[in-house]
Design a binder for these strands. Sequence first.
DNA 1: CGAATACTTGCAGCATTGTTGCAAAAGTAC
DNA 2: GTACTTTTGCAACAATGCTGCAAGTATTCG
Lengths: 137, 137
Amino acid sequence: MDNITSLFKKNGLSITDGRKKILSYFLNSEGALTHADVEKNAGEHFDRVTVYRTLQTFVDKGIIHQIPTTDNSILYALCKDDCGAGHHHDDHVHFICEECEKTICLDGVMVPQVKLPRGFKPRHSEMVVKGICDDCK
Amino acid sequence: MDNITSLFKKNGLSITDGRKKILSYFLNSEGALTHADVEKNAGEHFDRVTVYRTLQTFVDKGIIHQIPTTDNSILYALCKDDCGAGHHHDDHVHFICEECEKTICLDGVMVPQVKLPRGFKPRHSEMVVKGICDDCK
DNA sequence: CGAATACTTGCAGCATTGTTGCAAAAGTAC
DNA sequence: GTACTTTTGCAACAATGCTGCAAGTATTCG
């Protein structure tokens, strides 16, 4: 029983071909992926609806997480930390390279705390940095 | 000549009824707005395409800025700082209240610098904090 | 002011993206 | 293997976003 299979078991998910292929695709990609990436490159043709539902399931179970963008697309990336159903804690910074367009999780860089005005209670912070990555410099 | 009119003049934009109404709507709203908000509430019916183009124009001219989200919608908010065409510098933190769903620009809270791994060159940072706002606490 | 020019708007039509219900297929448990 | 549960794919639909073009406004300049 490989990693993928045991991860699905742990989360009470059925082991299906589609889920295995989609998760493998994430494991073999370095950056974050969009819905369209998955649909085109996951290895075989999956129905659009299947991809939506699979990604949603993975997010719910804490297998992947979403990265906010300003261009009306959602990016998904593997959770490297020990996230589980209902409790994500991917408090790392995301880096979007303006050259190669890749989005990279900087797992070693934590999102810093900021001092908020009186009355504001923070629960979760997201930080996205744009610039030039190591490969493109 | 009021504020709105002179702002348009300064940016070389024609003064039209639609632009005035849409900008007024931003001035009278406290939080950030989506495309749909503008289309429904700008005071009269504007064609969807007009709203897209108007928002795009405002972003280009540095009148409003975009806020990244994880739910496939783009939020727009007024630039309080002195942005102009081609050079935004809204380096403040955005706060999304999980209770009232409003998105607020914390103009007084700057996005902190983070130390990136070797080779990464930052150019622009975005930070979004979710939690409970002052009104809902 | 009024005509010529430049810009903006709305419409039609299209492409993409995201959602729901339902029946068939695949996976799981016994 | 059989009964049950979950997942998948299809059809249909809704919402979102974009482009070209003609008509309508705003601006400029005489």
